[in-house]
Nucleic acid binder design. Structure first.
Lengths: 253, 253
DNA sequence: TGCACGAATTCCGATATATGGAATCGACGG
DNA sequence: CCGTCGATTCCATATATCGGAATTCGTGCA
């Protein structure tokens, strides 16, 4: 017997998801088609969401999400205001490296990018705020993994998806790599997720010493070489420490 | 006859709102009390939201919002990625001024802070990301108001709430002030919202020249004096222009 | 170890409510 | 001016939701 759920609420959330992920406002018929729902049903859901001010109607009668949706999500992140605390250190790192800087947290078996700072030089990277990548093949993900390994290792068996020729795909190899990461306090990604992208990352710790996030720099293989990575490594580690201190102090440093 | 709305969806959104705005996870009874709803009703709503992965359960059986809620809101802002584009200029301004920098957009008759950069020196300001203040009495709000005056003026009659002794509370005085703002390309707030806070702001324009946002610097009256404001004014205006160019280019400058 | 209390969770019959097909309305284009 | 397409409203019906009560679970205390 499948769990008893509230259909109306589920459908309403589907509507919100569809509209928030669409670059354009959508009309009722369009929405109904995408969600495989009845038109008049969708209309009532939309009307409700509009009354609650989560949606607004365009002059052409299509609907789009309002910033109230953003406020909702923002409030959630607000109680964990890492991005704000980390911003100064991230910008400094972006300036120093000339590459893109990320802040990631764990989201299931993925690294979720909660903040991102582009440098002027950086090309369009593979990641966006809110995006994610498998823990085992990006630098920030490896950091998060290495310092929460007991917890996460079980979930990864059979989930070490191959992304490139260099992706680590066996638990044995991963065990070894994680040990290295813990010793060095740094993780690297040498074209293990995308053929032409490399990165380095370091841990961010809460006052109790638990690793709650990771900061990392990444760039195109052609420019962000192994040597560049070695050179920037200490700065990344320091950025991690600086952010950890900011978390401790409760304000940006 | 009140419009016909879907009660289940409304209540579900209330649950999400309550949980997202609470600093702590909440239990079923607690939620039910706050929302004045039946316990078993709340339980089913929560179960549904949990199945959809918008909520998760703590070991102590209380519930909290997941980052999926944040992702939802983030996607909305993503289609209007002002914050990312504006970040470099905002940080530069924060560095230069040593004060807090805001990016605001219009939200009804309020200025909504969509991005905020604290300088190391800045004291805890009155605003948070996602927070808002009346358009007529903060610097960024005045900019947004001045350049969308035809549209917004009608909505403000009777809504010029007094916040401090210096708040502008008459349409006549506001008309004059708005004219000044348009001419100078800058707006100021001299303790008009909070007795001890001042600010300056400048417009951000889309490629068509419409004012879509405002950048502003604000600080404590004691430190951020009229002279400081005059001194930093040009830099604020330039930051506004720089962000406008970034919007045009589609990438941070 | 067992008991008692509060909270969460499940159950279930009554009924308010969501449903979806059909009718209506409204905008636009030929 | 009419025809088409989409949005919106209507309405009878089925049923999904509601909430009170019963049950289970967890925790602290004796």
């Amino acid at each position: 017997m499948p769990e008893r759920l509230d259909a109306t609420l589920s459908k309403g959330m589907l509507v919100l998801e569809a509209l928030s992920s669409s670059p354009h406002p959508l009309g009722i018929s369009d929405l109904a088609a995408r969600l495989a729902l009845n038109k008049s049903n969708v209309h009532r859901l939309v009307r409700t969401l509009k009354a609650l001010e989560y949606l607004e109607q365009e002059p052409d009668r299509t609907y789009r999400c309002t910033l109230k949706v953003w406020k909702l999500g923002n409030a959630v992140m607000g109680h964990m205001n890492l991005p704000a605390l980390a911003a100064p250190a991230m910008h400094a790192l972006a300036q120093l490296s000339g590459e893109t800087v990320h802040l990631s947290v764990i989201d299931g078996i993925n690294a979720l990018y909660v903040e991102k700072v582009d440098s002027a030089r950086s090309v369009r990277a593979y990641s966006e705020r809110g995006g994610s990548a498998p823990l085992h093949c990006v630098a920030t993900g490896k950091v998060l993994l290495a310092f929460n390994y007991e917890l996460l290792r079980p979930r990864l068996s059979g989930n070490l998806s191959r992304q490139t020729a260099r992706t680590i795909t066996t638990l044995k190899a991963l065990d070894k790599e994680m040990e290295t990461v813990r010793v060095r306090g740094l993780a690297t990604n040498l074209a293990e997720y995308r053929d032409d992208v490399t990165g380095v990352a370091a841990p961010v710790r809460d006052p109790a010493g638990r690793v709650i996030a990771a900061v990392g720099v990444s760039g195109p293989l052609a420019r962000f070489t192994r040597q560049q990575i070695r050179k920037i490594g200490p700065a990344v580690r320091e950025a991690g420490q600086r952010i950890s201190e900011a978390v401790d102090a409760g304000r940006p440093l």
